[in-house]
Design a binder for these strands. Structure first.
Lengths: 339, 339
DNA sequence: TTCGGCAACGGAAACGCTTCCGAATGAGTC
DNA sequence: GACTCATTCGGAAGCGTTTCCGTTGCCGAA
């Protein structure tokens, strides 16, 4: 494989095209100040030698890195992966490379913000769906690059996300409309987050919906667990053990809801006859399992974040806070309570 | 934010530590030939100035890029994302950066191999779980870097994967052991792959198991669909419409199996009493849905691939073909057929 | 005919590091 | 005490671009 021909560089191209390196550089970068015929000649030679500029040298001499860091917890969860998918698509279409940083767990996270491995390597960093603590913000800003966020609304950066409270209300109002009055909530916290708080919007929606419907809230009906299906199942078991169990469950996410479903099935309860269940997200498996949920456009959030970043990088005008709409998707897991 | 102090470089560090740049470089890179006291002094100064070497300059002057490209289809699927997660973890622990290339769809893919956007940017490329066509191999090799694969066994590169046929046999033998004789297969093909073939190992296992058990195979019982839950559901519907339906279904993956489960439930059939269902993968939701499946260690495959790559990059000895074991996980979706 | 001005192009200085090679220093040996 | 040898260190030449200036050549205007 080409061990005979040493690595070719721009000087080679320039020489072969009969121009100076300066001109070659300009031609290759589509700058103006080059005659069209010259540009074509240079490009042709480059193509012929299958030459590509050295990003290192290019960057060193000036110009941007052409890379952006994406910081993401939990790659393997559908939500994060899908967000990433959308983001990557638009960034790569713009010829930006994506440097992936998976910060999983509190320790990993601390390490990331402390060492800043992306330092000097990227033009921007995108924080995917997790709140950045103040101390961490200070570290991040040390990098001196553009920062944006997507999928969560907890940072002072340009941001695209859903309105958690609205989403929660869509689910809750649906349950209330169906006639449920004893509604449980399974709140999910991310164990890796510093504060260990469930998304406040989704919890607020619960209380607000109850209040607006004149239903007293009962802390017995609220279970807070770490995010996850198994945890959702445990929570459901606890909720079932009450003297007066709920007739419906409002879960913070589909995965948690699916956990609850397992417990219900094992307990021999029928869904939706004996218990209604709702999730949030519209995970692909929600459809398969016939789960009523609130859909959020995940991939689109990633794409919007990508476009936002491109705009900022190009110095163009852009929205700095985009809220995408959510939508109630009624399936077979909800019905009026048995009278 | 530090707009007053111009960017500091190694020369600054060297000067301040009272050494030459040569020494500073050696100290910072942990090379030997530097007195321990000197090294500490340099490191201290670097820390104090919060200096990090410019990767571009470093690379330009010689040495590796410290980056590896990971090529992956379908990031948002659990399997791929988890593989990626494992891989990223070990690479980053070794201070290598991960450049993510999502090639989704035949067109995207062609573009990737044609333009080779990772060219001159990485020390290695890891191909995650998809077969590389010969033409594509030739393009890849143009990059002149190390190449390895993980999660699939279709390329001539160092590789870590499971044995698809063994995995399939574990599921099939379980069904046969339970007494099933009319066993259907739902084979899943990846629509983005050129050949559009289902994993041959998993299909072979089906036929081999039947043969070994002396059960004649019946092509009516084989459905081939694109990968996905909805597609699995469709396939199941077709299988049910036969004059003599199966008593068990062997699906190529958990997602497909879950789709089949939906169809069965909607049809009012009970699992496992009326129909046994098996998947492959042990997707997190398989546990939640009580699906019997064959577990493969996905994250671990990613990690192993990462370690393999590190070894190769360091020029150390290493296995070039690792096959990780799979394991039958019996849950509630399989039982003997009704007599 | 001369000259101002403009478009196209070239020379060469950065950019920030690694590494080859040689110099200096100090310890160990006879 | 002279000499060898290992260890530590510094000078300086690249690495492959971009970009600042300046030069050249040409056209139209005076």
């Amino acid at each position: 494989m080409a061990q005979n021909s040493r690595k070719i560089n721009m000087a080679d191209v320039a020489r072969r095209a009969g121009v100076s390196m300066a001109t070659a550089s300009r031609a290759l970068n589509n700058e103006n100040g080059v005659a069209e015929s010259t540009r074509r000649r240079v490009l042709a030679v480059a193509e012929e030698l299958s030459y590509v500029v050295s990003p290192e040298a290019s960057r060193l001499a000036g110009g941007a890195t052409g890379r952006v860091a994406v910081v993401v917890p939990h790659i393997s969860r559908w939500f994060f992966a899908t967000l990433l998918e959308g983001l990557e698509a638009v960034l790569r279409a713009a010829d930006l490379d994506v440097l992936l940083y998976h910060v999983d767990g509190i320790e990993d996270r601390h390490d990331f913000f402390h060492r800043l491995p992306a330092r000097r390597k990227v033009d921007a960093v995108v924080v995917l769906a997790f709140p950045v603590a103040e101390e961490e913000q200070r570290r991040l800003e040390l990098m001196g690059v553009t920062i944006i966020a997507a999928g969560g609304q907890h940072a002072p950066y340009p941001n695209v996300c859903i309105d958690d409270e609205t989403a929660g209300r869509q689910a809750m109002d649906h349950l209330i409309f169906l006639g449920h009055r004893r509604i449980a909530m399974i709140a999910a916290v991310d164990p890796d987050q510093p504060g260990e708080l469930a998304p406040p919007g989704r919890s607020n929606a619960y209380y607000a919906a109850l209040r607006d419907a004149g239903i007293p809230s009962d802390e017995q009906l609220v279970a807070t667990v770490n995010w996850g299906g198994a945890e959702g199942a445990d929570a459901m078991a606890r909720l079932l053990s009450q003297r007066e169990p709920p007739t419906a469950v409002y879960a913070h996410s589909d995965e948690v809801a699916l956990g609850a479903v397992r417990t219900l099935r094992r307990a021999g309860l029928r869904i939706p006859e004996d218990m209604s269940v709702t999730g949030i997200d519209d995970h692909p498996l929600a459809e398969l399992t016939d789960l009523t949920t609130v859909r959020q456009p995940v991939r689109q959030q990633g794409e919007l974040a990508g476009r936002m970043l491109l705009n900022i990088l190009r110095g163009e005008e852009t929205d700095h806070d985009v809220v995408v709409p959510t939508q109630l998707v009624i399936r077979g897991s909800t019905a009026p309570p048995r009278s």
